[in-house]
Nucleic acid binder design. Structure first.
Length: 574
RNA sequence: CGGGGUGUAGCGCAGUUGGGUAGCGCGCAGCGUUUGGGACGCUGAGGUCGGAGGUUCAAGUCCUCUCACCCCGACCA
C-alpha cells in the first residue's frame, strides 16, 4: 500500500478528550473516527488489525473444534423475557419497536438465540458435545462508554457456546477454550493472565477472565505471589487482619458529638478502625437494607448483589435512611427491626466492637454478635485488597489494574432449562443441555495491544497483528535513483507476499520517521541517497533502537526471513 | 442516574471577566527555496461561535431552556 493513496492521515495533535494511551494513539495515527459516544468507524489501518485479530481467533476456535455460524442481531424481546435476562441486562439492552409495534432487542450477546437453534437440532446425547461460535457486532447501551475502543456500545465480539451432556463434558469444553484463549493472546503478542471472575449479567457459576495489565485498566485484580491465586476484586476472597479474642463486655453508650464517619469515630475514641462496625445502607430493588461489616473493610457490591439475587443495587441516598427512621452516621443493626440485615463474616471474629447508637451523636461500645443483634444473612461481602492474606495459602496478596480481554463462563443448565433445550441421554431420560460461553471483544483486544505495546513515539505492533509487516521509507523521492530503488524494492517485497506500507510521499525525513514510529509497523526499511551510495538500505525494528545497513542484493529474502522470525509474540503468564 | 468539565475553521486553542468588524498555531491549496528525526517564505481557501428562545441600537460574550461530548462513580468483551 502506498501511503500517498492510503485513506486516513496521521495527526500532529490529538483531541484533549482522549485520555488513555490507546485512544490517543489510535486517533493520532488516523485509525479510528468517533461517530457518537462509544461508536467508532474503523479506518483501513485499524480494520486490517482487527481482521488479523479475527483470523487468529477464528483459527484457534476452529482448531478447538468450533464451528462458525452467523446469528441475527435483531432478536425478539420475548426471547430475553423467557430467560429473565432482559432484566439482568436492564438498560444496557438496546431495544427498538418495529412497524408492527413488536419490541426487538439488538443482541448484546447470543445465548438465547443459539440455544433456541441448538434446541431444534440436538435431540440426543449422540449429538453432543457441540461447539458453535460467531464473530459479529454486538450492542450494549453502556452507562458510560470510555477510553476509545476500550469500552464502546457497538463492538465486534467472538462468542463461542459449548453444549455438553454433563458437567464433565462442560469441563472438557471449558479447558479446550482455556487453551485456545491462551493461544490467541500468545499469538497476538499479548501477555495475559487468567483470573477468577464474577459472571455478572451473563449468569452461571464458574467464570474466568483474561486480563492484560496496564496502568489504565478499569478492572482490579488481586493475586498471590506464593501460590498463584488470582481473582478479580469483584469476587476475590482474602484473609483479613485477625483481632484478638476478648471476653464480651456489657454494652455501653458513648457520646460522640459531630462524629459520623468510621475514620472520625476511630480517631475520636482512639481505636483502630477494625474495632468498629460499619453499617452501609443500600437500596435493593427499591427496598432499603443494611450491610454490616467491620469498619476497616469495604463492602463488595458485586458479592452483595449476588447474595441478594437482585436486579438493582445502589447506595442509598442520604434521605432514604432518614425516611426509614434511621440515623445515617450513627446507624447500626443493634435494636433495629423491620429492615433486612446482611452481615459480613468478618464480624464473627473479634469482640466488643463500637457501633452506631441509632441516636444522633451516640455510639455503643462493646457490641458483640450474635449477642446484641441478628443478621438475616451472614456471608462474605468483603472487598479484598492488597496486603491481606491469600485465601488459598495465606501469602500476602498484591493487586494490579488491568483490561479484561476475554471472559469465559460455565453457564450450566439455567438457560437450557428456561429455554427448554433438552436432550435424551443414554438411559432414555430427558436432560437439560449443559452450556458454557466464551467471549472476546476484538476492538478491546486491539486497544489493549496498544496499551501494552507502545512508547512515547507511538504504537509498536506485534508482527502478528500489525496492519503491515514493513514500512518502506524512501527519503528524497524527487531523486530518481531513490524513487527507482524504492519502487523496485516495493514490487519485490510485495511479490514475496510481504505486506508493505510504502511511504512514497514527498515529505521531509522527519515527517516520515515520525509517522513510521507512530504507526508502529514492526520493520522499517529506509532507502535514501546515503544508503544507495553503498548499494544498501537501512533496516530497523520498531521495537529496537539500533539499525543496520543491508546490501540491496538479496534484501527481500532477508526481510522475508525477518518477518517470519518475529511472528510469535510474548508468552502467556499464569 | 449522581458529581465535575468542555463545545469558536478538519485538529489544537485564544477571545467570554467589562457586549462594539471572529483570531492564532497545525493541517489544506498554489508558487519558490529546503529537508537523515514533525523545514522556511509569500499568496490563498475555509467559521450557522453546539442548538433554540430572550435582553439590547448591537451578543461568541449577558439571561433562560436544550443538545452533544469528555472525566470520576454503578455495568461489561
Amino acid at each position: 500500500m502506498r501511503i500517498s493513496k492510503l485513506f486516513g492521515k496521521t495527526q500532529r495533535e490529538v483531541p484533549a478528550e482522549a485520555e488513555t494511551v490507546s485512544h490517543q494513539l489510535l486517533l493520532k495515527a488516523g485509525m479510528i473516527y468517533q461517530v457518537a459516544a462509544g461508536v467508532y468507524s474503523y479506518l483501513p489501518l485499524a480494520w486490517r488489525v482487527l481482521k488479523k485479530i479475527e483470523n487468529i481467533i477464528r483459527d484457534e476456535m476452529d482448531k478447538a473444534g468450533g464451528q462458525e455460524l452467523m446469528l441475527p442481531v435483531l432478536q425478539p424481546i420475548e426471547l430475553w423475557q423467557e430467560t429473565g435476562r432482559d432484566r439482568a441486562f436492564g438498560k444496557s439492552l438496546f431495544t427498538l419497536i418495529d412497524r408492527k409495534e413488536r419490541q426487538l432487542a439488538l443482541g448484546p450477546t447470543h445465548e438465547e438465540v443459539i440455544t433456541g437453534l441448538v434446541n431444534r437440532y440436538v435431540d440426543s446425547y449422540r449429538d453432543l458435545p457441540i461447539l458453535l461460535y460467531q464473530i459479529q457486532t454486538k450492542f450494549r447501551d453502556e452507562p458510560r462508554p470510555r477510553g476509545g475502543l476500550l469500552r464502546v456500545r457497538e463492538f465486534s465480539m467472538k462468542d463461542l457456546y459449548s453444549f455438553d451432556s454433563d458437567e464433565e463434558g462442560l469441563s472438557q469444553s471449558y479447558n479446550k477454550m482455556l487453551q485456545a484463549y491462551e493461544n490467541i493472546y500468545n499469538r497476538c503478542g499479548l501477555v495475559s493472565i487468567l483470573v477468577e471472575a464474577d459472571s455478572g449479567a451473563i449468569g452461571g457459576k464458574d467464570s474466568h477472565e483474561f486480563m492484560i495489565f496496564t496502568e489504565t485498566g478499569e478492572d482490579e485484580t488481586v493475586h498471590c505471589p506464593d501460590c498463584g491465586y488470582s481473582a478479580n476484586t469483584d469476587r476475590a476472597q482474602s484473609v483479613k487482619e485477625k483481632l484478638a479474642e476478648e471476653k464480651p463486655l456489657p454494652i455501653e453508650e458513648v457520646a460522640t458529638p459531630g462524629v459520623d464517619t468510621i475514620k472520625e469515630l476511630a480517631n475520636f475514641l482512639n481505636i483502630p478502625q477494625s474495632r468498629t462496625l460499619k453499617a452501609v445502607f443500600y437500596a435493593v430493588d427499591g427496598k432499603l437494607i443494611i450491610a454490616v461489616i467491620r469498619g476497616d473493610i469495604e463492602v463488595n457490591e458485586v458479592k452483595l448483589k449476588n447474595i441478594l439475587r437482585c436486579v438493582e443495587l445502589r447506595l442509598a441516598r442520604e434521605d432514604e435512611p432518614e425516611e426509614a427512621g434511621l440515623i445515617a452516621g450513627s446507624a447500626s443493626p443493634v435494636g433495629i427491626t423491620g429492615i433486612q440485615v446482611i452481615a459480613d463474616e468478618s464480624i464473627t471474629s473479634g469482640a466488643n466492637y463500637v457501633a452506631g447508637g441509632n441516636k444522633p451523636d451516640t455510639h455503643i461500645k462493646n457490641v458483640n454478635y450474635p449477642r446484641d443483634f441478628e443478621a438475616d444473612i451472614m456471608a462474605d461481602i468483603a472487598q479484598a485488597k492488597a496486603g491481606e492474606g491469600c485465601p488459598k495459602c495465606g501469602g500476602i496478596l498484591t493487586s494490579s489494574h488491568g483490561i479484561e480481554v476475554g471472559h469465559i463462563f460455565k453457564l450450566g443448565t439455567f438457560l437450557s432449562k428456561k429455554l427448554g433445550a433438552f436432550f435424551t441421554d443414554a438411559d432414555g431420560v430427558s436432560r437439560p443441555i449443559v452450556m458454557g460461553c466464551y467471549g472476546i471483544g476484538l476492538g478491546r483486544l486491539l486497544a489493549a495491544a496498544i496499551e501494552q505495546n507502545h512508547d512515547d513515539k507511538g504504537i509498536i505492533w506485534p508482527m502478528s497483528i500489525a496492519p503491515y509487516h514493513i514500512y518502506l521509507c524512501s527519503l528524497y523521492m524527487e531523486n530518481p535513483e531513490v524513487a527507482a530503488a524504492a519502487e523496485n524494492l516495493y514490487a519485490k517485497l510485495e511479490s514475496k507476499g510481504l505486506e508493505v506500507l510504502y511511504d512514497d510521499r514527498r515529505e521531509s525525513p522527519g515527517v516520515k520517521f515520525n509517522d513510521a514510529d507512530l504507526l508502529g509497523i514492526p520493520i522499517r526499511v529506509t532507502i535514501s541517497p546515503r544508503t544507495l551510495e553503498k548499494n544498501s538500505a537501512e533496516i530497523k525494528k520498531r521495537s529496537e533502537k539500533k539499525s543496520q545497513l543491508v546490501p540491496l542484493e538479496g534484501i527481500a529474502d532477508r526481510l522475508a526471513g525477518l518477518v517470519s522470525s518475529t511472528q510469535v509474540g510474548a508468552k502467556l503468564a499464569r
